[in-house]
Amino acid sequence: MMMNMVTALNSALAIEMENDDSIAILGEDVGAVGGVFRVTEGLQERFGTDRVIDTPLSESLIAGMATGMAMAGMRPIAEMQFMGFSYPALNIIISHIARMRNRSRGSYTVPLVIRMPYGAGIKALEHHSESTESIYAQIPGLKVVIPSSPREAKGLLISSIRDPDPVIFLEPARNYRLFSEEVEEDAFTISLGESKMVQEGDDITIVGWGAMMPIIQEATHSVEEIGISCEVIDLRTISPMDSEAVIKSVIKTGRVIIVQEAPMTCGVASELIARISNKAFLSLEAPPERVTAPDITVPLPKGEKYYYINMEKIRDSIEKVISF
């Protein structure tokens, strides 16, 4: 069935809720209106107000309430309306959700999912274009998943819901309705922590995730015309990070570029390059390169072109690394 990312996510939620009545969704405007991006559309009508809960406008409470529900044996799926509004919940996420298992030495666990749209390129107001995934990726105890396509979104969300650990599930808002693809109607899973080989190639490895994947593919197709063969990896999960697959690829190609929507410093790309340098040092034919946003606040839409990564930026970087 053809689905865009919104309908694929909705399908995953509906299937899982149908199969497991310990699952409940909570967040702002997730009920009658189906979420501001309509990801939970129709679910309250189908599963009732007890299981699709419109909460007061309180992000910290949403995260904490989900924590308590999970400790009591439920499987909550919380929605933060935008990643930029998740920061009031950071204390609960870092101080309780991520470490309840460790703090109690396993007496209590917090299996939950916190979904949030992230990323720029949607001509939105301030705080609606954040990609601060590395904040979450640095916290021990959390898993951080970022799907790039409708099918990926469905399989990864189902895995996240079933995972015994808390998962921060970041949905690229720009890709919500960008394209549709064939997605299985039934439940299927995609393992967390396993990257996806999108395209095999010989000359250079390009790694990305989430909203960057379609842009990366545009760039790799364009350099194919000048005879550069790219190997493309979709990381899918930034914590845990499948660096083994990336390292294996870099050992083969000798060159690597990491494409990261977020600002450069202390990002996921930094970590990945550290691991590559450590494990594939002697295979490198050129210094690993990052294509990232600059270390500035996401500009409002009128200035976004100075921030957002486009196909040309990636293509230029490929040519630079190839000609090193």
């Binding site: 904490g64 529900m69 909550p76 703090r103 109690s104 007496s107």
Partner: peptide, 30 residues
């Protein structure tokens, strides 16, 4: 903090009042 789960005591919570948020969730689940 490795309590017998039958005691139904949540672990120490040092960030002041943050435990109130999960108390709400425990009550909802109850």
């Amino acid at each position: 903090n490795h309590y017998d789960p039958d005691l139904r005591i949540t672990p120490t919570s040092i960030p002041v009042a943050s435990q109130y948020t999960y108390a709400v969730g425990l009550a909802y689940a109850s």
